[in-house]
Amino acid sequence: MAIDEVVSILLLLAGAVFFFAGTLGLLRFPDIYTRLHALTKADNVGLGLMVAGLALQAESAAAVGKLMVIWLLVLLAGGSVAHLVAAAARRRGIVPWKR
C-alpha cells in the first residue's frame, strides 16, 4: 500500500471521529448553544479532514479543486447558519446552560 493511501485512510478515519463526536454532542449536550458548538466542529474540521483524505485519492487537480470548493462553501454556510440559529435562540430569550 502506497504511503499516500495510508495517509488518506488515516485522514478519513480522523474525519469520521470528528463526525462521530459531533453527533454524540448533538444528542447529549444540554442546550442549543453547546449542541451548535458540537455540530459546527464536526462540520468544519471533520469535513476538512474528509476532503483532505479524498483529495489524496483524487484523479485530477480539477477534482481536488471541486472538493476544496465544497469544503469552503460548507464552512461559509455552516458558520453563518450556526450564528443565525444562536442569534435567533438568544432573541427568544433562551438562556445559555450553566452547570
Partner: peptide
C-alpha cells in the same frame, strides 16, 4: 423587530454571484 443581521446580509452577498 431586529434589523437583518450582518451575517445573513454578508452570506447573501457572497453566495448570490456564486
Amino acid at each position: 423587530d431586529q434589523p437583518v443581521g450582518g451575517v445573513l446580509a454578508l452570506l447573501a452577498r457572497l453566495l448570490t454571484p456564486l
